[in-house]
């Protein structure tokens, strides 16, 4: 998408909302007057900062000349967008038709249990966030979960703990 969109909020120091606002022009200024520019702009900001804080969305609403209700409507429509900070690792469990019938629900239950959070929540140590997806286009490999950009196929509920621990270790060298 964009070169500097890889941050995904894994920076050691977190930006304040004021600092985010200062970066907005550079990040998404070119989309302001483009028809259909709102969604790509929101994607860039979400990817860069990991979430879309209220003050940032209000600034986007003013800069793009779009009612705040509309910006909020777009943000709340797409599950990719979040208005609260997310964990370093984004876990998405597919509950599309194929994954659903092949045990997606059990996988989800196992993830919830392992992380101790519900859908839409983030672990206290900000390591993991959990969401459900509706088909990642890998139905032949069902059930599927995605962690960040990695697709894990034919996952078993019993192996979820191991799978997630690898992410916690690989990034910080400690288990959660």
């Amino acid at each position: 998408m964009v070169e500097n969109a890889t941050c995904n909020c894994a920076c050691s120091e977190e930006l304040t909302e004021e600092e985010m606002i200062l970066q907005l022009d550079e990040l998404i200024g070119e989309y302001q007057n483009k028809p259909g520019g709102l969604i790509p702009a929101l994607q860039i900001v979400q990817s860069r900062f990991g979430y879309l804080p209220e003050s940032v969305l209000k600034k986007i609403s003013r800069d793009f000349g779009k009612p705040y209700s509309e910006v909020a409507g777009v943000v709340s429509f797409y599950s990719f967008f979040s208005t609260v900070p997310r964990g370093k690792n984004m876990v998405r469990v597919c509950l599309g038709t194929a994954c659903y019938v092949r045990g997606g629900k059990e996988v989800l239950a196992s993830v919830k249990k392992e992380l101790g959070i519900d859908v839409g929540e983030t672990t206290e140590n900000r390591q993991f966030s959990l969401d459900v997806g509706r088909c990642f286009g890998a139905c032949g490999l069902a059930p599927v979960i995605m962690v960040n950009d990695d697709v894990h196929q034919r996952v078993k509920p019993s192996k979820i703990g191991e799978l997630l621990r690898a992410y916690a270790i690989s990034e910080e060298g400690v288990t959660q």
């Binding site: 779009k66 009612p67 209700s69 509309e70 909020a72 409507g73 429509f77 208005t83």
Partner: peptide, 25 residues
Amino acid sequence: CSEMQGVGALYPQGRGFDTMIGPAF
């Protein structure tokens, strides 16, 4: 609200069955 009055206070929020027509968030 948006087209005739140019105010835009109302917009669909959320998705699917849970959609609510109303102000932001």
